[in-house]
Amino acid sequence: MDILTQISDTLIGGDDEKVARITRQAIDQGIPAKDILDIGLIGGMNTVGERFKVHEIFLPEVLLSARAMHAGMDELKPLLIRDGIPSRGRVIIGSVQGDLHDIGKNLVGIMLKGAGFEVIDLGNDVAPESFVETATRENAVIIGMSALLTTTMPMMGSVVNLVREQGLGDRLKTIIGGAPVSEEYARQIGADAYGFDAANAVDRVKGIIGVN
């Protein structure tokens, strides 16, 4: 079995220490960093994602694989920086102002990283200006917002309006999610997408950016 398949299979199995070890071996063997990333790590997470969608595996297994992905990325990151290999895109995420729930947002961040995106997590209780200023400064392509309260949902609209008012709508897209949120609400406030769960959010982000 070639080493990239070993990385992918081991990641699917959720063994983070072994993924880190095999990733180091692949690096030592001179395998290009981009191949390790795309075929070994992201390839493995893509398989995990597909199995999750058809209910072959469940959230805990996805998260074990995500930890394994992160372990592999920790080994690979210096080479990715050295070789100037870009991420699939930079995504800003956060729970909107007034909201302190972060589980859903955390899961989206984990899965976006697993899919090869660079994620800047602003945490909880994030003011609209912080989302937009950070996205502008970091050349992000997506702002992802989470809200778990009906009382904080309106802040999503504030972010979307701010993006529009600053003329950033062409290059900066918005995606929203959370228990009280819906596709209809996303349309109502002018958000570009809605993710009904973390895996769906990743698919929607990929769709916005135009990657598989």
Binding site: L59, P60, L64, R67, I103, N106, I110
Partner: peptide, 18 residues
């Protein structure tokens, strides 16, 4: 603890604990 576990990369435990 849930927050700490997420920040430490122990995602699966954090999520199950939540």
């Amino acid at each position: 603890i849930i927050t700490e576990r997420f920040e430490a990369g122990d995602f699966a435990v954090a999520s199950m604990l939540d």
